[in-house]
Design a protein around this nucleic acid. Structure first.
Lengths: 225, 225
DNA sequence: ATTTCACAAAATGTTGGACATTTTTTGCCC
DNA sequence: GGGCAAAAAATGTCCAACATTTTGTGAAAT
């Protein structure tokens, strides 16, 4: 290594391995129920025996990986039931957090929400026009940023942490919907706009309802095209 | 080791280390913000460098331990604000789970709830009479079992997992209340009875309200004796 | 006496290799 | 083809070593 951390993010090896694995799980490159053999993973992602185990332990706590004693790790299975459970919990967490955010958020927060909404709009039209891995990744990030910004004024570090974890758990389902062209971008756009409007007007009831609707829309397989 | 797993629980080393650390964090033997040096912990609890790091990584994901890059691990700090946050999240999770459980629970579940309530009553009178480490531990376990049983019919593995994690996060606060004699056992008994009654009568509204009240009671420092 | 700085000591993060135990696969016999 | 024993692979654990980073210490300068 000659260059000294060009980007500021030179975090620990475990963190890098974890984000690589998270990405590959989300994109389906590591498939549900797939066995995660340490040696094999090390060949693919680098890192030592030790670091890889630590990473898997971390992802296990995040719910992306399951571990069984003496039988190693595997990608968490992804059944219809899992999706329902994840979506339900996300609904609970995010609506609770949004309600708090609507109480505590100030004008600058409103600004950040508008910015995040704008970013999401751009990313969504981009991925709708030319869907590839890059636009998909950016779209996913924009989705995440929008919700994270929405609730960042809630003042509860634990709710924000939960939001991130469960969003990560739902990523692969959402990206699958995108790949299969089962997202209704028009309706999404309408919901996002309604959500933004309600938030800016501090219409708690409407905002929570629209948010819940938007989350649960990832359950129902909207127009098969 | 001569005996071969008298109890069936001979899980991995990491699991044993984790439960030992959880216990000592809950009982304040490992204090908030205390630095957790690997070598020191190994001397105290056994296990290798590797296993100990893995354990700390696990507890970190559970919120009992905080990690900073290149600066190791320390026990999560326990401020008034942390307690408020934890209690708030517990309220959200457990009420949501109880509502689902009230929809799906069958008669056998009702039986288990009654049994858990009975166990809690016994443990609570025991710890009220002679408060020591043993009765405190059993009381804590009974509290956990009661809530876990209450929501076990909710059908959501993730809600149950969250309940456990956040309950563990609040353990040391609750045990501190007990040590300082700031628990009103009479009111607790009344609330628990009311909760049980409402659950058996499937009175959702009352049950949720009482549950929320019971959780939030751990915030307000009830009668200072 | 206090600040600053260089240097030594301690702690962390990472790696490789080793070994016992357990699971999974393979190949053989019936 | 089914069942079983041996072989192979994988997991879980440990130790020792090293680079890097943080922390503590003590001397020099103001």
């Amino acid at each position: 290594m000659i260059f000294k951390r060009t980007t500021g993010e030179d975090d620990s090896i475990v963190a890098m391995l974890a984000s690589a694995l998270r990405r590959d799980i989300a994109f389906g490159s590591l498939m549900p129920d797939q066995k995660l053999k340490i040696a094999q993973l090390r060949q693919r992602y680098g890192g030592s025996n030790h670091s890889m185990r630590e990473t898997l332990r971390l992802l296990s706590a995040e719910g992306l990986v399951e571990s069984t004693t003496q039988r190693g790790f595997r990608v968490t299975s992804a059944t219809e039931e899992d999706l329902r459970d994840i979506i339900m919990v996300r609904c609970q967490i995010e609506t609770a957090a949004l309600e708090l955010a609507l109480q505590h958020g100030d004008v600058q927060w409103e600004g950040r929400v508008m910015a995040a909404h704008h970013g999401l709009r751009k990313a969504e039209t981009a991925v709708a026009a030319t869907p590839d891995d890059l636009t998909a990744l950016q779209w996913d990030e924009a989705c995440k940023a929008f919700t994270a910004t929405l609730i960042e004024a809630c003042g509860s570090p634990r709710l924000m942490d939960l939001q991130e974890k469960f969003f990560n758990q739902s990523r692969r389902f959402r990206l699958a919907l995108l790949r299969e062209g089962r997202l209704d971008f028009d309706r999404r756009k309408a919901r996002q706009q309604a959500l933004l409007d309600a938030v800016l007007e501090r219409d708690v009831k409407t905002a929570l309802a629209v948010l819940a609707m938007d989350i649960e829309a990832e359950l129902r397989a909207e127009p098969p095209n």
